[in-house]
Design a protein around this nucleic acid. Sequence first.
DNA 1: CCGGGGTGCCGAATGGGTTACGGCACACAC
DNA 2: GTGTGTGCCGTAACCCATTCGGCACCCCGG
Lengths: 150, 150
Amino acid sequence: MDAIDRALLAELQRDATQSYAALGGTVGLSAGAAHERVRKLRERAVIRRTAAEVDPAEVGAGLLAFVTVESTSWMGDTAAAFAAHPEILEAHVVAGSASVLVKVRTATTEQLQDVLRRIHAIDGVNGTRATIVLETLLDRPVSPHTPGRP
Amino acid sequence: MDAIDRALLAELQRDATQSYAALGGTVGLSAGAAHERVRKLRERAVIRRTAAEVDPAEVGAGLLAFVTVESTSWMGDTAAAFAAHPEILEAHVVAGSASVLVKVRTATTEQLQDVLRRIHAIDGVNGTRATIVLETLLDRPVSPHTPGRP
DNA sequence: CCGGGGTGCCGAATGGGTTACGGCACACAC
DNA sequence: GTGTGTGCCGTAACCCATTCGGCACCCCGG
């Protein structure tokens, strides 16, 4: 995991469709060497997967909301309960007053309300507080940087 | 934007490295037709880009936190101020008491504190409240579904 | 009923890219 | 100095992306 690996990661985060020849060109490697590096990054699961990024508004998910979920019991192993609802994109166990923070995308406020209802139905859930996003200023992947210096 | 397009989007979100022949096979199309469909989806910006997904812990960003930012003035056009800090991955203008909700990834709590300090320095920012993530239960892309029925 | 334009798919050809392999340079240990 | 390992380059073979002609189907308008 040196500077060349980080440059490869940054390039692949920006555009994963380019050829290995072009990729090697920008980081100063041959196509074969660049391919070998990327193969190892995938093998070590530094690159989890390479996926297409879809415009949420185009697939019926133009409304974004964050929901803090209050619960009475421990929510450490309820991932499946949240995963069962496709509108729930992220679920994090958090420190603080709320137990779980959930990111939800739906098409309408009615569908959001329906998701809230289904979250309430999850075992141990005590209450929810939804915060609706009006405008997304920024949404980008993590930037690989040198350890110790952002 | 029919059922085949949605199947293509779902497949490309799962794995964008597969060949167009395999892609066409899963959706019931030839390689050429699948390629043409995907090309148009990119052209219409339904597919924003295709990128490698990097393990945050491997690039010095193992700590995840959500920060609610209180402000005195309107924060509608301060995207650049947040984008200037690479640890800030998302920034959303939200309805409710807080003005902006920010998603931050750093390596350590010290670096998180430094990010909070820099957020405070942004013009108009009045206060922050950080919520640290203990465990991520779920993190996935939007699932393309038929309009009106999740 | 019957052209005419348009769209979308298939099948084949070709140019480019991916990927495997031999060889070499360098670093390190003994 | 010698052996071992790692990582890179150049080349070659193969596979795949991309384009093109042709055809089937649908929707209008004559």
